[in-house]
Design a protein around this nucleic acid. Structure first.
Lengths: 228, 228
DNA sequence: AATAACACTTACATTTTTTGAAAGGTTACC
DNA sequence: GGTAACCTTTCAAAAAATGTAAGTGTTATT
């Protein structure tokens, strides 16, 4: 049973949505407190996020962008903002569908189903800037190609992607790759980093992994944006 | 450069679309003769199909459904049919997006970009009944899981999927796996078939590969439909 | 129901791939 | 220009994929 996470501040609307999806055979989960919305969304494991943009005291667009970076579930924005520029903005930030209220239940359901279908099999995908990683099999998709990474290569890339734009310390990578820091030669990490870089190069992703001397590594976007 | 296949009977509209996408950096290709539309669509290798539903002398819905079965590119329906039921119908038949005319160029472009992004990395996916196979890396997606198949397992499944519902002869599989029939023990195929089946079972796909005694193997749907 | 032909499964040996150690080269910074 | 940090290549050990072998199960025919 697919689970939908509903992020909507209007209690009445929330009830209606819960009802619609309940009847259609979905499990739902509502976020009702908006003091820590993003964290709450991330901690709920759902198959689709239904997001209102008009949330009390915060920017819905920001939530959309941040959530998209961290989770692989599709985001459907359902909002009363019916301006074209809002739609374009939301889509650009990573929303996968944009519907305006009022919206017939049948359309909503059809679009939800459509999204879920499109994303089926993608539950384990992390999105990077111009590429995708399946972090179960370490399959890397980019530039119309797909290649397999070895476990170590894949695990490194996964970690860098989860903190995209931030610096991941070498210590953290040791922990992730070997579960410990002890008895591991630093060179082992470097060798695997070299291998990852050359794999990335094979699919046209050059110069993505930056070295931060003395600290660790950082996955940058194609060209300078971002920065935590 | 991404290529968009435009299926639209109004010449003026066609010109406008070509212009819009051309300026946005896409390659376009228009189908102008509608005596053999489906075949023409299938023979064009594009990254996205832009489909009008009101085509002379034929049912746009049918085209949508048929095309979806055969190609992996996303289908965007752009039509003047603004009835909700048409939208639902098209989405159900496999359309990936549904927009009604008139549609601002910016919205069209945003949605197209969105679709292309969603489908990037899926160029090498074969669709089965309830599962997907990346036939470059032999990554199998099903039941919310993804696993890697070994080369032989993957190559067998790929072949069976390409002739889904039909019987694939053992001879054909020998050819596909080893490039020849000679000097290969039939048991080698059987062992790999066992391994494939157990891999399928791991992701919840039981009893999919049927044995046709004396002839070969056949990939059936979940339960009885299809048939050569 | 006995037989023979075909299909399936498991264990093991061979080959291939992944991985870390070693050694030498390169780069950034004082 | 010297030093510390990082990168790269090569090689050997460990892990995974694959075929062989041997035995078991199933089906069709008599």
């Amino acid at each position: 049973m697919k689970k939908i996470v509903i992020v909507e501040d209007d209690a009445l609307m929330r009830e209606e949505l819960t009802d619609i999806f309940g009847k259609a055979g979905y499990e739902t989960c509502c976020i009702t407190c908006f003091s820590n919305t993003l964290k709450d969304i991330l901690s709920e494991v759902g198959d689709l996020i239904l997001l209102d943009l008009n949330l009390p005291g915060m920017n819905g667009f920001d939530i959309c962008r941040q959530a998209k970076r961290r989770i692989s579930a599709p985001i459907l924005v359902l909002t009363s903002k019916d301006q074209l520029k809002d739609e374009l903005h939301a889509l650009q930030l990573g929303a996968d569908e944009y519907l305006t209220k009022p919206c017939p239940a049948s359309r909503l359901l059809a679009r939800v189903e459509n999204l879920l279908k499109r994303f089926s099999g993608r539950e384990h995908m992390l999105e990077g800037d111009g590429f995708l990683l399946d972090y179960l099999t370490y399959t890397l998709y980019a530039g119309g190609k797909s290649i397999l990474l070895s476990e170590k290569e894949g695990r490194i890339l996964e970690e860098l992607m989860r903190y995209q734009g931030e610096v991941v310390e070498k210590e953290a990578l040791f922990q992730v790759l070997w579960g410990t820091r002890e008895y591991i030669d630093e060179n082992a990490l470097q060798v695997n980093m070299t291998r990852l870089r050359s794999a990335l190069k094979k699919v046209g992703l050059r110069e993505r992994v930056e070295t931060v001397r003395g600290v660790g590594y950082c996955l940058g976007g194609g060209e300078g944006h971002e920065g935590c």
